[in-house]
Write a protein that binds this DNA or RNA. Structure first.
Lengths: 236, 236
DNA sequence: CGATGCGTTGATAACTTTCAAATTTAGTGG
DNA sequence: CCACTAAATTTGAAAGTTATCAACGCATCG
């Protein structure tokens, strides 16, 4: 089914959020908005280090925890019936993941690089949200941002290969502190599975952007955005 | 950005839901779950009839109302910078639309066929949700379903044309009461803009499915699903 | 130094779009 | 109610894009 709208703006919800359904990805990067949630997770949470490419949780497992990336990076994904892998999202330092409307994960999560992850019992956060409206509000903000992200992703998926890659780079750049250089933690295969393309097409799109002088690719994982407006233009 | 998870399962949120961000499409069809919300909307709402192809609300307008389709059908959409139109969702009788996390609509809405629409002040619903936890819960359920739908839509968008069309037909069939016949209120152009394809490709995919004896197309708008398992197989 | 994995590049095939035209359907006016 | 015009849909052929298959380069690591 379709597409886009969510709860009510300007509402106050003293609501039960019991086992609704579905999932959403939290907003990475801008964490200033989640001060109390992040802070609380810090206190309640357990930090675990996952080596590269190891599973953090699997599809259909009970969603008992909420996670926050302390260091490293994480991907969520789903294996489709035809064997393809669709990546749900990338989570960088500071990002929160594992948010679910349902009581089971709809996606699996893996460490892309070695990742230190803070895991907090969902129940604990729920209890906290019950006591602290600010925390509850943060959870909603996360949900809202996630919806927006998924929508933007949908818009990305109807574009051409080069537009998708350009959009991806802009997205990663926006999530990364650095000036114009983006350090990609994920492989070309990860990017391809995120954008619904093949690695060859991703590689060619990057080469094309390089030829167009929009980016530089000193190493495969490091990309310099030389001409952001060109990227924006390509992004659609 | 990416993708999928949302609020916390099994939580109780006495939360402020003020101007978060983003949008989501409510779940059409199965309305049994929203008894009290629907009922309340019935009492509070104003019914308006929109002729075919007229605007119900526009992108960036204040999202002051929540809508429910009484009769007819509605589409939400967004015009992309390159002129293409991306359809956000289709809303059939009983469906609720106009849900937003933000205080302005991210999409425009139009009547596909003449549509009788119930419009209810958002504030009124918020107030009701504040008093009635069941209503608040319904709003969350809608949000959760919407997230799930957007995710499924994302999965659809990375597939082949024929898979997308097959998936679309299954979706519409699931939302329609009728046995195996689906009466499509929308044009091929609407379908194409929903699936990120051209009308020609949609038409050819339908012809292909017809050749494969998976469907019959007595008239352009009426489709009979002869072999559902074939469609499911194609759907991925 | 030879494996092994990852990324790039090339050639070809498959798929989708684009452009064009034929066909059907719907709406209007007589 | 019929005829006619306009719009929508289908179909065909050619062009463009992306996937697939294959080879090559480059780095890391035993």
């Amino acid at each position: 089914m379709p597409t886009q709208t969510a709860p009510l703006a300007g509402a106050t919800y003293p609501a039960p959020l019991r086992s609704a359904s579905s999932t959403a990805v939290p907003t990475p990067g801008h964490n200033g908005a989640h001060a109390s949630l992040v802070q609380s997770m810090q206190l309640m949470g357990t930090a675990i280090v996952y080596p590269r490419n190891t599973e953090i949780f699997g599809e259909n497992e009970p969603a008992d925890y909420l996670y926050r990336v302390v260091t490293g990076s994480v991907r969520t994904y789903k294996i489709l019936s035809d064997g393809r892998r669709q990546i749900g999202g990338f989570y960088l330092t500071g990002d929160i993941f594992g948010l679910e409307f349902a009581d089971r994960h709809m996606l699996s999560a893996e460490a892309i690089t070695e990742a230190k992850v803070l895991a907090v019992k969902r129940r604990a956060i729920n209890a906290l949200a019950g006591r602290d409206p600010a925390v509850a509000h943060e959870v909603f903000t996360l949900t809202g941002r996630e919806l927006k992200r998924v929508q933007e992703r949908m818009l990305l998926l109807v574009k051409s290969a080069q537009e998708r890659v350009a959009g991806f780079l802009l997205e990663m750049a926006a999530r990364t502190v650095a000036g114009n250089a983006v350090e990609l933690p994920m492989s070309r295969q990860d990017i391809a599975d995120y954008l619904g393309l093949t690695i060859e097409t991703v590689s060619r799109a990057l080469s094309g952007l390089e030829d167009a002088a929009a980016i530089e690719v000193p190493t495969a994982r490091r990309i310099v955005l030389c001409n952001r407006s060109a990227l924006v233009r390509m992004n659609g």
